[in-house]
Amino acid sequence: MAAPSDRELSDFVLGEARLLDEQRFEEWLDLFTDDAHYWMPLEWGQTDPRHTASLMYEDRLLLKIRVERLKGSRTYSQKPRSRCHHLLQVPRVERRDEAANLYETWTPMHYVESRGDRQDFYAAWTTHHLVAVDGRIKIRLKRVDLVNCDAAFGNIQLFM
């Protein structure tokens, strides 16, 4: 594929959030490369995902387990099911490295997760490391930095 334009990168990030809001989790999972990670740090400015706890630091296998679990007939924490809503600022392309096939975007967002009568609100900055693979844009790293990453939380069951 020709190097993706800024507009294509930005549209990709917006489209990713829409898949989550529409609960099209299998299609969403398919946006990740095989070696991808989804990272939600626990610390402000965290640099090490391995020797410091994170809220999530998941490879495709772990993400797939989550997606499958959401469908399970004995997944009681999803009875009733959760829903989510992303409100994104226009993603900014922060870095383009065509030689290395790596593109980085930065996207402030508000995220709402609801279940039954309860609704929780989060604010975060999302960083995507994107690559072009076989004519498609894919995610190698999605990092979600919550403004209150070190707060005590209740359940967060879906994906920001």
Binding site: M40, R50, H51, T52, A53, S54, L55, M56, Y57, L62, I65, R66, R69, A152, F153, G154, N155, I156, Q157
Partner: peptide, 15 residues
């Protein structure tokens, strides 16, 4: 750390 986040985090499916 992995055990902690997989089992004890507010984002943990076990939790």
């Amino acid at each position: 750390c992995m055990y902690n986040r997989l089992v004890n985090a507010p984002t943990s499916v076990v939790g």
